[in-house]
Design a protein around this nucleic acid. Structure first.
Ligand SMILES: [Mn+2]
Ligand SMILES: [Mn+2]
Ligand SMILES: [Mn+2]
Ligand SMILES: [Mn+2]
Lengths: 149, 149
DNA sequence: TCCATGATGTAGCATTAGCTACATTTTGCC
DNA sequence: GGCAAAATGTAGCTAATGCTACATCATGGA
């Protein structure tokens, strides 16, 4: 069945741009777990001096099995040290990534709060939004925060 | 190796809240593809009267194989009709979801644009951000837009 | 009419990400 | 020191999401 030629070009969002946006979204999702893990490892290291598997499992809301497998991927990718039966520590690359993520996370939460959004809602939404915030958009958030201050 | 008791409780983000946030993020990601698909199907239907597999593949930036399998899941979940060798159409549930997603998408893009973010950046970031925007946050975005207008 | 081409469908591979069940190691405590 | 419990590790399952390669269907033009 051929599309009836009516209405024809309705000047809709171009396919190419949406495809590019969705591809970027998929790329973001591929690196997202690494970001949340290094952030959590940094938080736990600051609070307790180290990050253990159980602590990560509790904080990330998954089982220790999932943590194990993800940590081995983080190790494969050079973000963490991983010795059996020892706590997990960030490498230099891991610390750098964690610092950027912590900063971005805080900015996104502060920005949402500045719009009058409740603390808990801001935290819930920010955990997902943060990864999709490009450097340009992060700058815009910071600019808005400075203006509002 | 036990954590040295120094610094002890550093009043960091509570584990329970972060775990809950990450669980919500994972739930969002599980329904995200359905949202992007019904939105694309609605767009294509409006523009051409129907949504074909090739068109969806082009617009979503994936192969037609991926489209096929996802469409069958959408059919399983009641969002689309699916007859072999025919175009794909939204069910009532699909149209309802698509309308909400289109509206939310437009709001997120407009909100980012109102912060001075470039058109293309807004579009790229919005494609990922939109799914993590809760009803409360969407309201805040709309409120901000009304205020700025 | 018929057939080349485009559209669609399917088989099967890889990776990621979650899980339960069970094995092993480490540790806290008597 | 010895042992129970906690922590950690591993085997193997499911599901989602991407892909290539190949098979089948549908159609428009010669
Ligand atoms: Mn996050
Ligand atoms: Mn975060
Ligand atoms: Mn999207
Ligand atoms: Mn996301």
């Amino acid at each position: 069945m051929k599309p009836p030629s009516r209405a024809a070009k309705k000047a809709v969002r171009p396919s190419a741009l949406q495809a590019e946006s969705l591809q970027q979204t998929r790329r973001v999702h591929a690196s997202e777990i690494a970001e949340d893990y290094v952030e959590a490892i940094a938080d736990l290291s600051a609070a307790q001096g180290e990050a253990r598997v159980v602590d990560l499992a509790r904080r990330l809301g998954v089982t220790h099995v999932t943590v194990n497998r993800t940590v081995s991927r983080l190790h494969r990718d050079g973000y963490v040290t991983a010795r059996p039966y020892h706590a997990i520590f960030l490498t230099a690359a891991g610390r750098k990534l964690a610092a950027a993520c912590q900063r971005r996370h805080a900015t996104v939460v502060a920005f949402l709060r500045s719009l009058g959004i409740a603390e808990k809602t801001a935290e819930l939404d920010a955990e997902g939004i943060e990864h999709h915030v490009s450097p340009a958009t992060l700058s815009a958030f910071e600019r808005h925060l400075r203006r509002r201050k």
